Amino acid sequence: MSKNRKIANIVLCLIFVSFAIMQLNDPDGWLWFIIYLVVAALCLINNFRTINKGILWVTFIGLLAYSAFHFSLFIDYLQTDNKEEIFGEMVYEKPYLEGSREFLGLLLAALAIFYQIRGKKTQ
């Protein structure tokens, strides 16, 4: 594995660890903490060990499948006028905000796993 790929995996690991930590104040934070921590771990482990492609594919497909549950909320968000709301506080009257954040987080996680699948060190 190239040095650049190892550095990218470390950066991805740190990003997803920080995502995991930020979830701890959410009502369902434990779920998101686990999701992001698993992605971080897979990125880091792939620097040192060969990860079975089947595990990576199952994780990738699982993340995409879970993101599908949030897709309609993301579409609702795209149809709003005030796009900056996504960076604000959670508003219970606007479930599309949290759903959009969750959709985008799952999409980023899936992309990080896809990056691992495309790597040379996987089986």
Rank of each mutant, 00 (worst) to 15 (best):
L56V: 07
I21C: 06
I7R: 04
F87Q: 09
A109I: 04
I10W: 09
D28I: 08
Q23T: 14
V17Q: 04
L37S: 14
D76P: 01
P27A: 08
R118N: 12
Y77C: 03
I86N: 06
N25L: 12
Q23A: 13
F71S: 10
F114S: 03
Q79I: 05
F103M: 08
F74L: 11
L97E: 04
G62D: 04
N52V: 07
I55R: 00
T122L: 10
F103W: 13
I45C: 04
L78S: 12
C43W: 00
L106Q: 08
G88Y: 13
F60M: 06
A109M: 02
G54L: 13
V17K: 04
I34P: 00
I35P: 01
K94L: 10
K121I: 14
A110N: 13
V11Q: 03
I75K: 03
I75L: 07
N25Y: 13
K3Q: 14
I86Y: 11
I61R: 00
G105E: 01
H70G: 05
K120V: 13
Q79R: 11
S67H: 04
I75V: 10
Q123W: 03
D26Q: 11
I21R: 05
A68V: 11
A109H: 01
E85W: 07
N25G: 14
S18Y: 13
L107D: 02
L111R: 01
W30M: 11
K120H: 09
Y66P: 03
K3Y: 12
I15F: 11
T59Y: 02
S67V: 05
I86K: 08
M22C: 07
R5A: 06
G119R: 04
I35H: 01
F87Y: 14
G119F: 01
A112S: 09
R118Q: 14
W30S: 07
P95H: 06
V39E: 09
L97Q: 02
T50L: 10
M90E: 15
K53S: 15
I21H: 05
F71H: 09
V38A: 11
N47L: 03
Y77N: 02
I51Q: 06
S18P: 01
A68N: 00
K6I: 10
N9P: 02
F60T: 00
R5N: 06
I7S: 03
R118F: 02
H70Y: 15
L97G: 05
F19T: 04
C13W: 04
